[in-house]
């Protein structure tokens, strides 16, 4: 019996006259890797942005960890336990790798202006803990040796890892990865796959948007397929792969 972590019901989103998401419902269970695939423009990233509070939704409800999720501001979503990465990596380029991860601890720490100015004991202890945790996470994603490098000087694959480390620093129950393998070569993808499997072993639930169908099919417990803003399938990878609607969405109707 697996618990439901996130349940979305009837999510809609339109941009002017374009209906980007049409009544999308899905259920993510605790501890699984949930794949979200679909052709370009299917609405995957839009759904992501709605889940993480970046776009206001036009209808629908999301329940997260048994409570209704406030989707009005991203930092509240992060506080509730959903962290994300971006399709086009968004790091704090002029901060070091360690500082990037330390920023991720913001939402789980408290020190304010006066604590910082007075360097109170509580503030110093918290600051040391933030630093320790950041170093642990850099180690966890395998870039501990780059801790003092500026984020924008890291190699592409390392930047992806750093973004994941920053997201993990917020102690998420659900980690949402937006095309983490985009632009990666085979070796980097294999390493990424190991990292994501490690996350699952460590109890983090993962929502994965990916173009690399092989990666998704090999990695995910369940997969949902979006096409033109609608969910056309949701099941274990083997079933989804055989679904005629999915084949049609990817290959077109004239395929035979």
């Amino acid at each position: 019996m697996t618990n439901v972590l996130l349940e979305a019901r009837g999510i809609g989103k339109r941009f002017g006259g374009v209906l980007a998401l049409k009544d999308v419902s899905l259920t993510i269970r605790c501890g699984e890797i949930y794949g979200l695939i679909g052709p370009n423009g299917a609405g995957k990233t839009t759904l992501f942005n709605v889940f993480t509070g970046l776009y206001p939704r036009d209808g629908g409800e999301v329940e997260f960890a048994g409570k209704p999720l406030q989707l009005d501001s991203p930092h509240r979503v992060a506080a509730a336990g959903i962290a994300r990465t971006f399709q086009n990596i968004r790091l704090f380029g002029n901060m070091t790798a360690r500082e990037n991860v330390m920023v991720g601890r913001h939402v789980r720490t408290r020190a304010g202006v006066f604590g910082a100015i007075l360097r109170s004991r509580a503030e110093r202890e918290e600051e040391a803990a933030i630093r320790r945790r950041a170093d642990e996470l850099l180690h966890y994603v395998g870039i501990a040796d780059r801790a003092d490098d500026l984020a924008r000087n890291l190699a592409y694959g390392d930047q992806r890892r750093l973004e994941i480390a920053r997201a993990l620093a917020t102690e998420p129950q659900l980690l949402a990865l937006d095309e983490p393998a985009a632009g990666m070569n085979a070796t980097e993808t294999a390493a990424l796959r190991e990292l994501i499997e490690g996350l699952r072993r460590d109890g983090v639930t993962v929502l994965l948007i990916e173009h690399d169908v092989k990666l998704v099919m090999g990695l995910c417990n369940r997969v949902a397929v979006l096409d033109h803003g609608e969910k056309i399938a949701e099941d274990v990878p083997e079933v989804v792969r055989a679904n005629p609607k999915v084949i049609e969405a990817y290959l077109g109707t004239s395929a035979h």
Binding site: T52, G53, L54, S73, P74, H75, A78, A79, A83, R84, F86, R90, L91, F92, G93, N94, M95, V103, G104, H106, V107, R108, R166, A167, A169, T170
Partner: peptide, 13 residues
Amino acid sequence: EDEVAAKAAGIDT
């Protein structure tokens, strides 16, 4: 550095 990323990382901008 990046306001959107800052928000997503949990900062009440």
